[in-house]
Design a protein around this nucleic acid. Sequence first.
DNA 1: CTCTGTGCAAAGGATTTGCACTACG
DNA 2: CGTAGTGCAAATCCTTTGCACAGAG
Lengths: 146, 146
Amino acid sequence: MTTQLTHISELIQTQGYRLTAAREAIITALVQTGGHVSADELVEIVHQAAPQVGRMTVYRTLDLLCELGCLRPVYQGTGAAHYILFADGHHHHLVCRLCEKVVEFDECLLRELEERIGRRFNFAIEGHLLELYGLCGDCQGRDAVG
Amino acid sequence: MTTQLTHISELIQTQGYRLTAAREAIITALVQTGGHVSADELVEIVHQAAPQVGRMTVYRTLDLLCELGCLRPVYQGTGAAHYILFADGHHHHLVCRLCEKVVEFDECLLRELEERIGRRFNFAIEGHLLELYGLCGDCQGRDAVG
DNA sequence: CTCTGTGCAAAGGATTTGCACTACG
DNA sequence: CGTAGTGCAAATCCTTTGCACAGAG
């Protein structure tokens, strides 16, 4: 966990950005949540440790992390974007289309696919998000009824 | 293409929803685009064929299709959500984290994974979205420079 | 010391309500 | 006919600017 914080901090400096107190607080909070929050939730959490950090600094830092390739915004249901950390370069979701429940899983056999596609389209692949959609156990009956 | 329109129309009726003129117009427009539009763009297109259809009917129909499992909103860059049709139950993107360029590809070896994960978590998997992130050819040099 | 990063408040969009009307089935 | 679906406009919510100040390097 602390490793991840360190990794991101170094990435920021390596890329020529400044490692400010606000950014540290935000990244710490983000890592702490496991990387699965809306901007708003993150603001809340950051404020517990660093009340002076403003909402837009959070937005801007999230933007920066996206640009650095270690974060990604996703739409889960509607409303605010959720941000997910690419801890190991990938992330996997199982999403119920009715109740919007989200389960994470780790199974990954996409390394090979990444390489093949990257080569074909001349992309330097850095990670991926895989989302499987369907009905969770609870909603399977519900759907049949209508 | 027409097949897809028929498929969705039947899905709507099967699930007990009404197939209205507005919905037909919206779905026609959606299929026509290949399923890769923002709500706003779709409103434009729908208006060409059916000017009386309102913006929120488009939003509500998109919502309905998401619920039915044949559509999915994704965030590409920032701003408006983009909607993608699950033509064959899956969709694959290659996204550049700097210029936000999006390439679609078809390679799919996830059937087996779907089954395994579905069984493990008791989900009825209906489709998936796979997004690979990285740097496109144009941005690879740009990134090194900083 | 310089320039990037920050914070505030107000602007800018996209999406969602509430309610009377229309039309599917 | 009854009810689900529609359309409008106003409301709401998330996110982005503009600008003066503070702190990293």
